[in-house]
Design a protein around this nucleic acid. Sequence first.
DNA 1: CTGTATCCGTGAAGATACTG
DNA 2: CAGTATCTTCACGGATACAG
Lengths: 108, 108
Amino acid sequence: MAYNIPVEATLDVIGGKWKVVIMCHLIKGERRTSELKKLMPGITQKMLTQQLRELEADGVVNRTVFDQVPPKVVYSLTEYGWSLRPILDAMCSWGEGHIALIEKEVAN
Amino acid sequence: MAYNIPVEATLDVIGGKWKVVIMCHLIKGERRTSELKKLMPGITQKMLTQQLRELEADGVVNRTVFDQVPPKVVYSLTEYGWSLRPILDAMCSWGEGHIALIEKEVAN
DNA sequence: CTGTATCCGTGAAGATACTG
DNA sequence: CAGTATCTTCACGGATACAG
């Protein structure tokens, strides 16, 4: 694939609808599938799995399966995934500021 | 709207399919509609206008109309839009590194 | 040159049920 | 608990034509 501008490559990796949200949660530490679901009430099982698979394929997320019953699967950022941290941090903090701004406007 | 995590607010603003690309181009300076189209061969007139309108509505992009014939419209980042720069810069440079990595893999 | 309006196909994403 | 498999829906986004 030829990109017209490098940033498109970034969007290929974290441009999915839920990918940034998932990554932001994983920054705080590894999470089980069920934990991620609770953290993202809006996502369906299908989408969660799908987005995680794609992140895995791009080498930014790790999937660890514990061979036990009931099953336990844990997701975490790979070392390469950690290189996205500056982006994720920036997006998180900008979002906080933006929300504060919106609520201020609503108050008026 | 209630966000489950602040970063969702950020995605509301720059989560559109072309928004980050547009913003990255505007970082380098104001651009006319036709210039943006050339910079983004894959985008349609409709999508370009739509995404620009939404960015405008969110206060991150400015639209300046010159009253002349033929029409001339110039887009630029607003002051608030500039606050997104850390995110955009990080995404751009990460993309560059990611592309380099991919091409290296292909070479093997 | 810039923008709007319309039509329409595709595919993303939801709901549901089922497996191990 | 975690994941897969269908089926369906609907909105995103493309193509096209037209207007100022």
